[in-house]
């Protein structure tokens, strides 16, 4: 039996954050995580269920002033359909291409994927390599207040974020990457999609000849949150991508990941995969 006593479907951001300010709200966007989690008892509905899908401020994919803004309600399918995402943020696009099934992609939103904060969340690793920031809106004293925080700081643990109960994730902002930027995504699994990552890897860097700069590496499902791998990045930063650099990066990656053992994989195997698959991705970069 559900404990929901009120259902709200606000039609503006103002209305939505006002409702949040009143308290005790469960936010519903795509519902693809919320539904199974409440059904299995992992999550309990709060008295007010707020469907944010009619809030216009939460949608849209726009580029202006060197920043790409992705509205929190943008579905995985719309990201896949966007030529801009495909061309400029190919790692993110690849992650969407490995994301669940068509049915789920049609409903699931990027904001939901972020707020669900699964260590294995597919879009999180590519977003980390893009220096993505999240924009949070709230209405503490009668007017809308916004704060922006880097995604890496927003994700605080499995299923946990720095979002305050009265805050709504409004959008994701990504600085437009410089010339020569490329990104890629790898997700381990036997299926082309419809699978939870045993590990995932996203890389992003600016390439100048054989030299890589502004190197970003992120790993999924090897820590309580999706993480940036500082030592791995340092091993590659500013160096030509050759066998020695790749060896150093792989050694750093294996060293700085401390995955758990669970029903999907052992810790040992996850680290082997991190090393082997990072090497495969970097070999691909070196040879292309």
């Amino acid at each position: 039996m559900s404990d929901i006593t009120a259902y709200a479907a606000p039609r503006s951001l103002d209305e939505a954050v006002s409702l949040l300010q009143a308290g005790d709200v469960t936010i519903l966007a795509g519902g693809t995580d919320l539904t199974p989690q409440t059904k299995s008892g992992k999550l309990t509905f709060r008295p007010t269920l707020m469907n944010i899908r009619r809030v216009p401020e939460l949608s849209g994919l726009t580029e202006s002033g060197g920043v790409m803004r992705i509205g929190a309600l943008t579905t995985i399918s719309s990201l896949l359909a966007s030529p801009l995402i495909h061309e400029r943020f190919n790692g993110l696009w690849q992650a969407c291409d490995h994301f669940a099934s068509d049915q789920i992609r049609n409903a699931a939103t990027i904001g939901g994927n972020i707020c669900n904060a699964s260590p294995a969340g597919d879009t999180l690793t590519p977003l980390l390599t893009l220096d993505a920031r999240v924009v949070l809106a709230s209405k503490p004293n009668g007017s809308i207040v916004r704060r922006t925080t880097p995604l890496g700081e927003f994700l605080t643990g499995p299923g946990r974020t720095a979002r305050q109960p009265a805050e709504l994730l409004e959008a994701i902002e990504i600085p437009m990457p410089p010339e020569g930027f490329f990104s890629a995504f790898f997700k381990f699994g036997t299926r082309p999609a419809l699978d939870i990552s045993v590990i995932s890897i996203a890389i992003g860097a600016v390439r100048d000849g054989r030299k890589l700069t502004r190197v970003r590496i992120a790993f999924g499902a090897v820590a309580p949150t999706a993480i940036r791998a500082a030592a791995t990045e340092a091993a590659l930063e500013g160096r030509p991508i050759d066998a020695a650099a790749i060896d150093a990066a792989v050694a750093a990656a294996v060293n700085e990941t401390k995955p758990v053992s669970d029903v999907r994989a052992s810790s040992w195997y996850r680290r082997e995969l991190v090393g082997n698959m990072l090497r495969r991705m970097l070999d691909h970069v070196a040879n292309s």
């Binding site: 036997t190 299926r191 082309p192 999609a193 419809l194 699978d195 939870i196 029903v263 999907r264």
Partner: peptide
């Protein structure tokens, strides 16, 4: 079907992996 100490650990299609069409 992962059975550890008498307990089924993966009672769902997320972690009990049937073959999907592309495989």
């Amino acid at each position: 079907l992962i059975v550890e100490n008498g307990v089924i650990r993966n009672p769902n299609f997320r972690d009990y992996k049937l073959v999907t069409a592309p495989e």
